[in-house]
Simulated assay, not measured.
Amino acid sequence: MRKIIPLTFAAAALALSAVPPASAAETVGTILFGHPMEPGIAVIMIKSGDRGGDRAPVIYRDPSAETRERAQAEIAANPVIKASLERRNIRPHNVLAIQTALDGSKIIYAR
């Protein structure tokens, strides 16, 4: 019995060492959560009545009419965003707002 436990740990260590190293393009985030559908586009779904916690700022949880109009105009002007919404089965009229991050990526708030 005393030999089984060390042999088990040795077998586990050998099995873990056989895993190939991650490529240079992968980060901890992509290893844990996978690759996004489109690089540079993130979608945050906001359910009705949901306060969203820290995921969505208040101005995007309850956007003004101007914010929604800007989002609709950006969807109409950007075919990449339109295609991304189609792949995710999100209708354009359900988009509440689109935020542009500092690196140029887009964050889409939809219901």
Score class of each variant (00 low, 15 high):
residue 64 S to N: 08
residue 67 T to E: 14
residue 104 G to A: 13
residue 26 E to H: 14
residue 49 G to H: 10
residue 46 I to V: 12
residue 97 A to T: 03
residue 79 P to V: 08
residue 30 T to E: 00
residue 41 I to N: 02
residue 8 T to L: 15
residue 57 P to H: 09
residue 101 A to G: 00
residue 68 R to W: 02
residue 70 R to Q: 15
residue 58 V to F: 11
residue 10 A to M: 11
residue 5 I to G: 05
residue 22 A to K: 13
residue 53 G to T: 10
residue 90 I to L: 08
residue 35 H to K: 15
residue 71 A to T: 04
residue 34 G to K: 07
residue 23 S to C: 05
residue 75 I to Y: 06
residue 79 P to L: 09
residue 102 L to F: 01
residue 81 I to F: 04
residue 2 R to N: 13
residue 60 Y to S: 01
residue 111 R to I: 06
residue 16 L to C: 09
residue 55 R to D: 09
residue 25 A to H: 07
residue 98 I to S: 09
residue 13 A to D: 01
residue 94 N to V: 00
residue 64 S to Q: 08
residue 75 I to G: 04
residue 19 V to M: 14
residue 98 I to C: 05
residue 58 V to T: 13
residue 68 R to P: 02
residue 33 F to H: 15
residue 19 V to T: 11
residue 10 A to R: 06
residue 103 D to Y: 00
residue 110 A to F: 05
residue 30 T to A: 00
residue 42 A to C: 01
residue 68 R to G: 04
residue 97 A to M: 04
residue 15 A to G: 10
residue 100 T to S: 09
residue 17 S to T: 12
residue 38 E to S: 14
residue 48 S to N: 13
residue 46 I to Y: 00
residue 82 K to M: 08
residue 11 A to H: 06
residue 87 R to K: 15
residue 82 K to Q: 15
residue 31 I to M: 15
residue 90 I to K: 03
residue 26 E to S: 14
residue 7 L to H: 01
residue 34 G to N: 07
residue 11 A to N: 07
residue 74 E to F: 03
residue 7 L to F: 02
residue 31 I to G: 08
residue 89 N to Q: 13
residue 82 K to W: 01
residue 69 E to N: 06
residue 43 V to I: 14
residue 74 E to P: 00
residue 94 N to H: 10
residue 33 F to T: 11
residue 77 A to C: 07
residue 94 N to L: 07
residue 57 P to Y: 05
